[in-house]
Design a protein around this nucleic acid. Sequence first.
DNA 1: ATCTACATTATAATAATTCTAAACTATTGA
DNA 2: TCAATAGTTTAGAATTATTATAATGTAGAT
Lengths: 142, 142
Amino acid sequence: MPKNCNFIEKLREVGLRPTKQRIKMCEVLYNREKTFHFTINDLVKMISEKMNEKISLATVYNTVHAFEKKGYLKEISIDSHKSYFDTNTSAHHHFFDEDTHELIDCDESDIDKINIKKNITGKKINSVEVLVRVASDNQTQK
Amino acid sequence: MPKNCNFIEKLREVGLRPTKQRIKMCEVLYNREKTFHFTINDLVKMISEKMNEKISLATVYNTVHAFEKKGYLKEISIDSHKSYFDTNTSAHHHFFDEDTHELIDCDESDIDKINIKKNITGKKINSVEVLVRVASDNQTQK
DNA sequence: ATCTACATTATAATAATTCTAAACTATTGA
DNA sequence: TCAATAGTTTAGAATTATTATAATGTAGAT
């Protein structure tokens, strides 16, 4: 687990000032064994639990978006009401459990590389994302 | 192009009352050569342009959601700020042009069938959606 | 024609996100 | 070291998108 000075370095590298709020968010997001998925709401709860000082909601939004822009976070949009952020920023796909509203990472080996045959003139592919929606077997299909 | 009586039939079939607002919306959405993508905002504009009578915003939301639940429309979520509906409800994938914010259908032939090797116990796959984000070649990558 | 259940409407309420402007802080370089 | 300055945080207001409410209207059945 990296110590805070690593976060300071990392933030500097991408041109973000290592303010105490950003460092605290780095700790909450990256001082853990595994990558994970969260909503802004989740994150606000997590921060206020782990911190004695307050953090403004606006700061959480700003910082999440700053991190996203710099490639520290990736957004995964499920529908107009549910949007997650992923601390795993490498290219990978997801399962979404429609019963529990849980987002599950796909390993690289779970889905073959996707071959796009269509080419849109003058455009390059930025990303290819697969979302597999699953639900309990005995439940009516969405 | 189907005439309105077909819409009345269709609505009845899925258990929706063929009210004049729903029929009007069917006309706007399905009286066209090709399927297309729209946001709620787009739709409200289109309806108010094509109609002399007013339609309430609440009705547009209700009707779109009723249509979605009955399988007349499919939602495609791009990010937390952009959500489209698609009148093409068959299983297919999409390109999203990050420059123009345009959503483009993939033909079945554009992407090979996706083989999911992972199995989540007790869960069945409801859908598999691929979103390919593209952008102008000479632009910085998102 | 009348009844009943469902739909529509305008408006209010809610929720999520962004804006604002003042106070604050990290960095720069004198 | 210490101001200058450029970027950041903050609380709260503003905005936007969506849903709820309750009164009125309408389709379909009898």
